[in-house]
Amino acid sequence: MGKESRSHISNKTWTEVVKDYAGKDLGERKHWYGSVASAYNRVRPRYPQAVIDRVIELAQLPPKAKILELGSGPAIATVPFAQLGFEMLSLEPNREASELAKQNCADYPHVEIQNLAFEEWQLERDRFDAVLAATSWHWIDPAIAYAKSAAALKAQGSLILLWNTPPQLNEETYQIVDAVYETLAPSIPLYARHEGRKNHQADFLKFSELITDSEYFKNVKYESSIHQVVYSLDDYLLLLSTLSPYIALAENSRNHLFTNLQEALHKHQGDRLNLSFISAFHVAHKI
Rank of each mutant, 00 (worst) to 15 (best):
A133W: 00
S149P: 02
H138I: 12
F128V: 01
P142G: 07
W137P: 06
K148A: 10
A147I: 02
P142F: 05
K148E: 13
W137D: 13
A133K: 02
L159W: 14
F128H: 01
A150H: 14
I160V: 12
W137M: 11
A133E: 05
T135Y: 10
P142S: 06
L159Q: 04
A133Y: 00
R127T: 13
T135V: 12
L159P: 08
L153R: 00
T135M: 09
I160P: 11
V131S: 07
F128Y: 04
H138A: 13
Q156R: 11
A152Y: 01
K154G: 01
A152P: 06
D129W: 00
D126W: 00
D141Y: 06
Y146R: 11
K154C: 01
Y146C: 10
A133I: 05
S136G: 11
L132S: 02
T135A: 14
V131Q: 05
A143Q: 15
R127A: 06
A151H: 08
Y146I: 07
A147F: 04
R127Y: 13
A155L: 04
T135E: 14
I144C: 09
A152F: 00
D141C: 05
A147E: 15
W139G: 03
A130E: 07
A130S: 13
Q156H: 12
I160R: 07
Y146Q: 11
S158W: 02
L153S: 01
S158F: 00
D126E: 12
S149W: 03
L159M: 09
I160A: 06
D126T: 08
G157C: 10
F128D: 05
A143M: 14
G157R: 10
A151Y: 08
W139A: 03
S158I: 08
T135I: 10
W139D: 01
I160N: 09
P142Q: 09
V131W: 09
S158Y: 04
S136D: 04
A151P: 12
I144K: 11
L159I: 06
Q156P: 00
L132T: 01
W139P: 02
L153P: 03
A150S: 15
R127W: 06
A143Y: 11
S136H: 06
A130Q: 03
P142V: 06
T135L: 13
K154W: 00
V131L: 06
A133C: 14
A145C: 14
H138G: 06
A130K: 08
A143H: 12
S158E: 07
A147W: 06
I144T: 15
V131N: 08
D141E: 15
L153V: 01
A145H: 10
K154E: 01
A134Q: 01
A152H: 09
F128C: 01
A151K: 15
A147Q: 13
W137S: 13
D141L: 10
A155T: 12
Y146S: 11
W137R: 13
R127C: 12
P142T: 02
P142H: 01
R127H: 10
K154N: 00
L153E: 02
L132E: 05
R127M: 07
P142L: 05
P142N: 03
A147S: 14
A152M: 07
H138R: 11
